[in-house]
Every structure is written in structure tokens, then in C-alpha cells.
Design a protein around this nucleic acid. Sequence first.
DNA 1: CTATTATGTTACGTGTCAGTTTCGTTTCGT
DNA 2: ACGAAACGAAACTGACACGTAACATAATAG
Lengths: 199, 199
Amino acid sequence: MSDGRRPAPARGRPRDAARDVAILEATLLVLTEVGYDQLTIDAVAARAGVGKPTVYRRYPGKAALVAAAVEHRAPGTPPATPPGDLRAALLVTVQWLADQIAEQEIGLLGALFTGMRSDPGLAAEMRRILRRDEVAMTEEPFRNALESGERLVPGAAELFAEIAPAIIVHRLVVAGQSCDDAFLDHLVDDILLPLLRRQ
Amino acid sequence: MSDGRRPAPARGRPRDAARDVAILEATLLVLTEVGYDQLTIDAVAARAGVGKPTVYRRYPGKAALVAAAVEHRAPGTPPATPPGDLRAALLVTVQWLADQIAEQEIGLLGALFTGMRSDPGLAAEMRRILRRDEVAMTEEPFRNALESGERLVPGAAELFAEIAPAIIVHRLVVAGQSCDDAFLDHLVDDILLPLLRRQ
DNA sequence: CTATTATGTTACGTGTCAGTTTCGTTTCGT
DNA sequence: ACGAAACGAAACTGACACGTAACATAATAG
């Protein structure tokens, strides 16, 4: 999948790698701020401190630029969980998960919603990245929490990955409410724990 | 909240009420087809079989038009549930709920994502409608199912309204997969029933 | 009938953004 | 040193949608 073209002997001035990452990071910033449709190449170039042709030299258009930026994005690393205490581990994990979603994923979801209609390939790419990140944000912390010796239902990790992000996103977007401590307690005590513990 | 202005004696040709609803329905159609940003007044007018000034005579711009259209939208009526069988009732309800969300709500969610940035008031309005419809689509059918005599946890209706739409929306949008029978069985058997039944 | 307003069609001016081009400068490989 | 290519700034063209205006026509109240 790595671009299979370096036949160009690169006889002139090489491209500036620092500008590559500046463009991608600026794209992510603008994308999460104003959404996909409102994102303009000029705004990205200005934010990156770069000329507009410098962007067009790298990407043919908005869709390719956004796809590259989303691909470049790296999910944060989940926090360490206290061993032996499943409830505390779940609480720490969903707190971190809610922060991640509120800060970054919401913007990408908006881009997915709007960009998916004009470019199905971009939508598929977005979904792939979102899935990748959600798995990284749910399964690995859950494997850690699983070492607490609790008896869980089979497929508990997949169930957690299916439910927790869904409820958090729904609360943020549809309800328009923040994920405060009371809500996270409710999520863990009334939904996750009863569902995951072997009965 | 009904517009408090009829001091105008209406001395000329009155507005055509048929065109009112044609505009609103066309707006909903275009909105769910292309999203909020791609929605143009010209497209709405053409779809409604109406001239562009006829739209502008009623609404000052895109935000007000979309807000009125979303307000005008009526949620479908939930299906009757078989009495005495909680699982069957839940299954029928989530099937209908998944259809409603896939057909209509997804488009409105996209509009919410994009319109919320340009117009916070519109976002609040959208959220109000979405909440209203989700309550109508979850609580009432659940009250019916509740007459089955099963012993449920306290607050079961609210829990159902919080979880079922969230998981369905998440699957449709993030996973990009349809809500087929296997998924709905999984939703009812592995998530809803264990969570709602008093243990 | 007469005044008044809605309607459709058409046209218009404005602004924004896409994507390209030009030009002078800078930075590399050879 | 020399040529090739990237760079920033700026200007440019074309598309597109907004919002408004002009006009003739239709419908209604009084």
C-alpha cells in the first residue's frame, strides 16, 4: 500500500517533510473545527503556514487530503488501569474514552456524515480509521482490565467495544450533553457491569 | 409558540397552504438526500415544484427553512406488540426502530452535525426534535411491552430509550452495516434482555 | 370592479471556493 | 556552477449558490 513510485530521480529541490506533517495536522484541525464541507484548501494552507500550490502539489483535491489526514491521525494511548478492581478499571477507561470522543472523534464523525455522500470511497476510508481507533481505544484497555480475575461473559471485550462508544457518542451528539462523572458512573454501574459480569 | 402575528388583514391573494407543505416535504427529502451543506434553496424549490422567491417569501434562509421542515416532520407510529411475550415485543420494536432510523433519522443526524456549527439555535432545535421522536419511538412501545407481566428493573423504559437507538445509530454510521435480523437478535438477546430483566 | 398580494419565470449582482498559472526565490542533486 | 524542482505570494478563470429584483399573471378581499 506504500506508494510504489520513486522512479523519479528527484533531481531538483526535494519536498519538505516538515510541510507534509504541517499540512496533515492543519487539515485535522480545520476538519474538526468546521467540518468537511466548510473545509477549504485555503484555510488548510493558511493554518499550515504554507502556500496553496504546496497543498495541491501533494493532493489532487479535498477528498484525498482529508483521507490522508485521517490516516495520519494516531489515537491516544489508553491509561493504565488499577489491577484487581474491575469497576475502577472500567471507570478510568470510559472516562478516557469519553474525552477522546469528545475531543476528536466527533469532528471526524461529522466529516464522515457529510463527506460520505460526495465520495463513497472516502466514507469507507473514514469508517476503516474510526473502527481501527475504536478497537484500539476499547479492546486493549479491556484486555488489561480483564486480568483482574473477574468472571466475565464470553465476548466481553467485543461487547464493551460495541456498547460503550455507541452510548457515549449518542449522548454527546443527540442529547448534546457532556459526559460528566454522574453519567459515567451510570454507564458503568447500570449498563456495563451488569452486562459484562458472568451471572 | 404558534406565530403570534395575524394582524395583517390579508388583503391580497392568500398564500397557498399546499405550497407550504410541498416546500417542507421537499426540504426533508433534499436534506436526507444530500445533507445540510449541499442543500440549496434552488433544489428545494425545484423539488417542490415552486419558484425560488416563493421559498424566500416564507423563510429568510436555509437555517429557518430546515428548522421548520424538521419541526413539521412527524415520527411514524410504532407497531403493536404481541402481549405476554417480552422478547417478541422487543424484537418487533427494535426492528421498527432500526427501519425508522435508517430511513429518516440518519439524514437528520447529518444535518445536525453540520448545521450545529453554523447555527447553534438550529442545533438545539434539531436536538429537541430528535429527542422528541426518539422518546416517541421508544417509550411508548416499551410501555406496551411492559404489560407482559415480566419483572423488569426500575427505569427499564429509560434504559431502553438510552441504549437501543445509540447502538443502532452507531452500527449504521460508524460500522456502516445494515441492521439485519442477526444483529437485531443479538441486540435483544445479548444486550437488552439481560439488562432489563430483573435478576 | 379595484386594490392588493402571491406566484412563476427570468435575470442580475455578489461572494466564495476550486484549481491553475505566473513569477521571483530558494534549495537541492550532479 | 548549473539545472531542476519546490516554495510563497498573488492573480486569474470558472463554477456555483445566495439573495434580490423585474415583470406579467393569478387569486382574493372589499
